[in-house]
Nucleic acid binder design. Structure first.
Lengths: 151, 151
DNA sequence: TCCATGTTGTAGCAATGGCTACAATATATT
DNA sequence: AATATATTGTAGCCATTGCTACAACATGGA
């Protein structure tokens, strides 16, 4: 219990730094965000979101997409009927828009630093999930220094 | 539901954007980096890296750490004997230092934007894996702007 | 209508990464 | 030395997320 653990000549420091790694739940949330963001984009762009299109866009097989959609359905983020296209619920649409916003802010910020657009977009895709509110606000402020904050 | 549900003609756009999601291999690489970085830190700080300390730092059980260490061993990043502490191979040490460097640059950059230190460090932990060479260089340049101008 | 083709769904394999429970080993204390 | 405690290892569970192979469905064209 106490930190007087033992070790002959070795101290037992080990300051617990709470989860450097993404937890299970966090990772599931990232996946959900990627999916709903893409679904929203497909609907906005082409009028509908189909399993095959999602698979192409996400770079995975339709099987993986199918299974993930079932999970999102259970989580109340999408509605989907067999052999039909996928729709966002209100919650799904909200998450989709939030993700899209974060993605855009991060990408714009990177571009403002001189990072090429394509690279900025690609990096932002990964980074957006790890950017805290504070950091996102710092990015937004850097983009438009005259304004107060980003909602 | 939506009137545009079934595609009447052939709006099959779907520009393949190659993997928005992290691939399997990429994710394994991130885990490896987190582990070797932490192992390097523990060795530098306390003289050795033990399974239990790693578990505490990473916020997982010793079982998870143990299994991951075996994978890192197979990948040639660490050496480990039963009931003994863990050592980095040359490759592991190199990866550890690279990760630490990236982590530091990202954290310093965020701090330079006014993000509180603790938040900067936490965000950097997740972001470092998604920062391309170009973006990292943009961060570094932002940190020391006079470097390439004076010649 | 029937068939070809494309799309979607299902079955089942593998690897990762989390866990609990328990066994084995190492170390410290008595 | 014996024992108590801490550390490490093993067995086996579950969920996620990738895959291939195959089955079922939908739709357009002959």
């Amino acid at each position: 219990m106490s930190s007087t653990a033992s070790a002959p000549a070795k101290p037992r420091p080990a300051p617990p730094r709470v989860s450097l790694l993404r937890t299970r739940k966090e990772h599931a949330q990232e996946t959900a965000q990627d999916y709903v963001e893409m679904i929203g984009e497909l609907i906005a762009t082409t009028g509908e979101a189909r399993v095959t299109d999602l698979a192409r866009r996400l770079g995975v097989t339709h099987v993986t997409v199918n299974r993930t959609i079932q999970r999102l359905r259970r989580r109340g983020l999408v509605t989907a009927l067999p052999y039909r296209s996928i729709f966002l619920t209100d919650a799904g649409r909200q998450l989709s828009e939030e993700s899209r916003f974060r993605h855009q802010v991060v990408a714009d910020f990177l571009k403002s630093l001189g990072v090429p657009a394509a690279v900025a977009y690609a990096d932002a895709e990964g980074m957006e999930h790890h950017v805290s509110r504070e950091t996102l606000e710092a990015f937004a402020k850097h983009l438009r220094p005259g304004r107060d904050r980003a909602g």
